[in-house]
Design a binder for these strands. Structure first.
Lengths: 212, 212
DNA sequence: GTCTATACGCTGATAGAC
DNA sequence: GTCTATCAGCGTATAGAC
């Protein structure tokens, strides 16, 4: 079979960013910025388009609807946060203990949310604002991420680092709450994302530990 | 000055619930239910009115606008939660320590959010969904509530119950996040609000404690 | 006080020129 | 690919009957 001189346009676009793909990306970024700033209901397609010097109608060449757009934003946000935490865990030394892994995950997740990552923090903010169908899809995708956390907590419990009277589901949700709420209240300034991440991680880890 | 046989209608309405006042109350409750279920943008005045067998237009006899309605819901929610926590604190024995006070506040706040209190949990859910002007007003009202928590944390720190390296503002927001996020994920069933409140309180208190 | 009927504005979405 | 119309739908809000 002779090699094709050039892959079909569609495939090419999927592989290396052609113009359409690049535009799609900047639309996603712009949408994340506006959605994050205004919330789901107040964000208008006009504002999003204007953010990158386009007109609202043009967005429809790249996305089928407003809902498809939010969904895409949240899908990327979910995947990106998941991947960042996985990477951080992979970067740990081989012998890292369960607590070190949990601590790493907490800090990395929080930094994704705080460090100007519009897509990550917009995603968190939008989860409970988006229309139910979108929310369901995203939550389904987040199950894998949730499973990662469940594993981390079970590992910590097996290592004796979690007091036996705590329910692990409640624990997990309380942790996610402490982390995700920061997407709303955080304003750059007094403390760095790293400082905040450290404090929260310290609190959580300490809170899980069995009473001496 | 001879006593009036009957107070003017307006004053009467403000003092003891006349019909208008009673209706106003049930509108607030209905609105909280719908807003909590659907979120700010998806909740329609038609749905709210229908919830209590009214027509959308009739709501305008009681509230000037959709925004005025959400604002009223959130105002009541804020006040009611604040008051519930104050009451719980007041019910403690006189000699209760700083940690016991903090623990009580955590549990009471969480129970307000979880125990089918539509107005309290709708308020939390709406804070970051409502239009900016409404949010600003509500946040302003919540400053007093925030001050209560700041006092609780400072008291705990003075009592030596909080490790010195934790920033109290970050701590406070992390706690509120862990508590408030529950308004979104909690579904009645497996665990009671009390059980959840206990777990979260235990985690938080433990997390603040100085490392031995 | 609540209804019905309607006006109004706004925004998501489409069609076709370029 | 992006623009310029333009439409359609919906939900808030108003006016007036009852």
């Amino acid at each position: 079979m002779p090699a094709l001189a050039r892959a079909p346009a569609q495939v090419q676009a999927a592989e290396e960013p052609g113009k359409a793909e690049a535009t799609r990306q900047s639309i996603l970024e712009a949408a994340a910025r506006i959605f994050r700033r205004d919330g789901y209901s107040a964000a208008r397609l006009t504002d999003i388009a204007a953010e990158i010097g386009m007109k609202a109608g043009s967005l429809y060449y790249h996305f089928g609807s407003r809902e498809a757009l939010v969904e895409a934003v949240m899908e990327v946000g979910t995947r990106r946060t998941h991947q960042a935490v996985l990477d951080a865990l992979a970067a740990l030394p081989a012998g890292a203990g369960a607590l070190a892994r949990l601590e790493t995950a907490i800090e990395r997740h929080l930094i994704m949310v705080l460090a100007q990552e519009d897509i990550a923090s917009a995603t968190i903010k939008l989860i409970w604002q988006a229309p139910a169908p979108v929310r369901e899809k995203v939550l389904a995708e987040q199950r894998a991420y949730g499973a990662l956390w469940r594993g981390l907590l079970e590992g910590a419990r097996a290592a004796g680092a979690i007091r036996p009277d705590l329910d692990l589901s409640v624990t997990r949700m309380a942790i996610m709450g402490a982390l995700n709420w920061s997407a709303d209240w955080y304003r750059p300034g007094r403390l760095t994302p790293e400082e905040i991440a450290h404090d929260v991680a310290a609190m959580v880890i300490g809170g899980l530990a069995p009473r001496p």
